[in-house]
Design a protein around this nucleic acid. Sequence first.
DNA 1: CCCTGTCTTCAGAAATTTCTGAACGTTCGC
DNA 2: GCGAACGTTCAGAAATTTCTGAAGACAGGG
Lengths: 169, 169
Amino acid sequence: MTGETDRREAAERLALALVAVGMQRMAARALAAFLFSDEESLTAGDLADELEVSAGSVSGAIRTLAQLGLIERSFVAGSRREHFRMRENAWTTVYSRQHSMVDDVLSAAEKGVDAVGPGLARDRLLYMRDFYTFLLNEVPALVERFEQQRAGSQRSRGSGSRRRGGPRP
Amino acid sequence: MTGETDRREAAERLALALVAVGMQRMAARALAAFLFSDEESLTAGDLADELEVSAGSVSGAIRTLAQLGLIERSFVAGSRREHFRMRENAWTTVYSRQHSMVDDVLSAAEKGVDAVGPGLARDRLLYMRDFYTFLLNEVPALVERFEQQRAGSQRSRGSGSRRRGGPRP
DNA sequence: CCCTGTCTTCAGAAATTTCTGAACGTTCGC
DNA sequence: GCGAACGTTCAGAAATTTCTGAAGACAGGG
């Protein structure tokens, strides 16, 4: 189980990794706080305490995370404060979300194809377009496959496939 | 074919989209310049002219792109200047590259699992770990599939599958 | 009503990222 | 060698992003 300090440190490290993948700093820290909390849900105040930041920052982070579909409001019995919790499908959502930006890249490539005459440039743009088109078609299926596989192995808790290839080429 | 202005504009738009996916601004503009040029290769000077930026900026952008494996040196007959060109597999490379950051996220999740005792936090972290493990296993196969499909349809140039689903859910 | 606790907004401060320009190598032709 | 053309590095300027703190909106209790 290890101590509270280790937990905080692991959370910060995770937040850092998320920032590297493009998430805003404060939003990443907040998401990590949700992940690492044993509470069912957290309030803005909880987050401010945990992260030691201003209420304003928390407000912004919550807005961002909610907008991304990673957290949701959670109505709690007799509490006036607003509770939030991570959504079940948060991770698949982040992933798909990133692919909506891929969509923008694809559109740009297509506009490019229209803007140049035949030649090397057009060839390059066509290649690019094909790759991103491929991705846009395949990724949703990939995510779905994960969810099904997950649903299938409900019983065998606490494990899973658990393997990651060696260093990438 | 349309005019030179359209071409430049399309290039800038593409660069913008790449920035949104996390690429540095100048590197993105430079990559777009390579994409949209009908030349086989470009020199640092060409880029500086095309993008209207300082030699220093170009130098930095080239270093970045080369490091990412998106461009390579291209030795040209009797030219003293260094020529660069986009690598064939640039796009699959960017994609895989992004997934090396996914690897970092996964590591962070695993450290998290070790840092917390049984409970909700651990459950969330295990879920996260499983998803990213899945991705790390599947994505290389995905890229490979594209490359094979590509190699297969060498003949039917200028087209391809060409389809993109409606709005994502 | 007014007061208290909770959350949001926003202008400006702080931190970070990005670009430039000048100084410094290198290489090659002469 | 010397000069010119190219390219790189790096300190500081400029632009952008991110955070804060103070002011204010809103709901419910007293």
